[in-house]
C-alpha cells in the first residue's frame, strides 16, 4: 500500500513541477508587474531544476538553482531595483505577432517529433555516474571550460565598465 502511495506522491510532485515550470513561465511573460515576472521566472527556474533532477542529474539541478537563482536572479533583482523609476511598462496587448511564436514553435515541435520517429530510446533516466563530469571538464572539455571562465570574467568586467561609463563622463 505504501508503494502505491509513494507513487502517487511522486506523480503529484512531478505534476507540481510541471505547473511550476509552465505556470511560472506564463506569469513571467504576461504579468504587468515586473516583480511578479521576476518571481514567475524564479518558480520556472526551480521547476526546471526539478525536471533536471527527474532526468537523473541532481548535480545539474543544484547547479541550476545555484547559478540561476543565486547569480542570475539576484542580478535581475538588482537590475529591477536600479532601473525602477515609475510603474512598470507592462506588456503590449497581444496582436497578430502572437502567432509568430505559436507557428514557429509548432513547426519546430513537428519537425522534432518527425525526427524522433526513427530513433529508439537507448537510455533512460535515473542512472548516470555524475562524478565523471568533473574529470571530463578537466580533461576532454578543458578548453571550452577555460573559455567559459574567461568569458565570464570578461562579461563581468564588461558589464561593470558599461554600467560605469555614464558615471565617468558625467
Amino acid at each position: 500500500m505504501f508503494d502505491t502511495v509513494i507513487h502517487d506522491v511522486y506523480y503529484l510532485s512531478f505534476a507540481m513541477i510541471l505547473v511550476l515550470v509552465l505556470g511560472g513561465g506564463i506569469i513571467a511573460v504576461t504579468s504587468k508587474s515586473l516583480i511578479y515576472c521576476f518571481f514567475g521566472l524564479v518558480s520556472s527556474l526551480l521547476g526546471v531544476a526539478g525536471l533536471y533532477y527527474n532526468l537523473g542529474s541532481p548535480l545539474v539541478a543544484v547547479m541550476q538553482i545555484m547559478i540561476y537563482i543565486g547569480a542570475v536572479c539576484v542580478a535581475i533583482a538588482f537590475g529591477i531595483s536600479l532601473t525602477r523609476k515609475t510603474e512598470d511598462e507592462g506588456v503590449k496587448p497581444p496582436d497578430i505577432k502572437a502567432a509568430i511564436p505559436v507557428v514557429l514553435v509548432t513547426a519546430m515541435l513537428g519537425s522534432t517529433l518527425k525526427g524522433l520517429e526513427g530513433r529508439h530510446i537507448v537510455a533512460s533516466a535515473h542512472k548516470a555516474d555524475e562524478s565523471l563530469i568533473g574529470w571530463m571538464l578537466l580533461k576532454e572539455y578543458l578548453l571550452p571550460f577555460e573559455i567559459i571562465s574567461i568569458l565570464l570574467t570578461v562579461a563581468v568586467i564588461g558589464a561593470v565598465t558599461i554600467a560605469l561609463i555614464n558615471r565617468r563622463i558625467g
Binding site: 547559478i67 562579461a155 558589464a159
Partner: peptide
Amino acid sequence: IGIAAAEAAVFLGIAV
C-alpha cells in the same frame, strides 16, 4: 547555464 549567467551580467550592465 554558465553562458546564460555571463549574458545576464552584460545585459543588465547595458540596461543600467
